[in-house]
Simulated assay, not measured.
Amino acid sequence: MTENTSRVAIVTGGSRGIGRETAARLGKDHFDVVVVYGGGRAEAEEAVREVELAGGRAIAVQADVSDEQSVSALFDAAEKEFGGIDVVVHAAGIMKLSPLADLDLAVLDEHLKVNVRGTFVVDQQAARRLRNGGAIINFSSSLTLLARPGYSAYAATKGAVNAISLILARELRGRDITVNAVAPGPTATSLFLDGKPQELIDRIAAEPPLERLGQPEDLAELVAFLAGPGRWINGQTIYANGGSAA
């Protein structure tokens, strides 16, 4: 175990997109970061280097967020390397699109396993192991309000994330641990961009008053606030979408 006085964060989905940008942003605040990845070891190692360049220390750990033994081992690795855990950012998730009437129910089951069960599993370990004064930050989606056709499975799972986050915040009374959900709007990551024609991307980007897509750093700044000075924000779903209307 490393002697450590820094705060320690676990970031699931930390090898790509918003999770990766968040890991680097926490590094800038001198967090020690556990970059959690599903399959892309090379990307995770790149994310580790970005955290280190920003000013923090980091390791990469592979885990299946829907598997309780895998997640328990992840938390063990974080505690062994850095001595404890203060912040958990749960950014891992999947999104596959289909009209509800045409949705393969196996795809629905996959969404429920990764996005809902994964949140339960990660939050369960976080609730058991976070040091007092910590923060749990789950990722929801503005699609719970924007209600775009084709997103029923994904949006349904993110509605569950909102409920989990609020209830867990109340269950942790007396621990000085905040629990919030961040609900991004359309953000320029591969999760959003892949498979969409440019015309559709341009149309969605023009919708908010700021007339652009969100960038991963927009969300990373919000997470850093919730992980640090934003101690009076608790049990909330924060819609970070540039003003897109429901």
Rank of each mutant, 00 (worst) to 15 (best):
G174L: 08
H90N: 15
A155M: 05
A78K: 10
S152D: 12
L105C: 04
R129L: 06
A47C: 06
S165T: 12
G83P: 10
D67G: 09
L74M: 14
L103Y: 10
V161Y: 03
V87Q: 04
V122W: 05
L172N: 00
A42M: 11
V87F: 08
I164H: 09
I136M: 11
D123K: 00
V88L: 15
S142K: 00
G150S: 08
D123L: 12
G55T: 09
P99T: 03
M95P: 03
A163R: 09
R148V: 11
A153V: 01
T144Q: 09
A42R: 12
K96S: 14
A60C: 10
I85E: 03
V114C: 01
F139S: 06
E50W: 11
T157G: 12
V88P: 08
V122N: 04
G56E: 07
E52T: 10
A54D: 07
L108T: 06
V107N: 08
R173T: 14
N138C: 03
I164Y: 11
K80T: 14
G39C: 06
Q69S: 15
K96L: 15
K80E: 14
T157H: 01
P149K: 04
H111Y: 07
I167E: 13
E50P: 02
L74S: 07
A163D: 07
I167A: 14
L166M: 15
E171Q: 12
G134N: 09
L112M: 15
Y154H: 10
I167P: 00
T119R: 00
V116G: 00
V48F: 04
V121S: 02
A135Y: 03
L172V: 07
F82S: 10
E110D: 15
V121Y: 01
R129V: 01
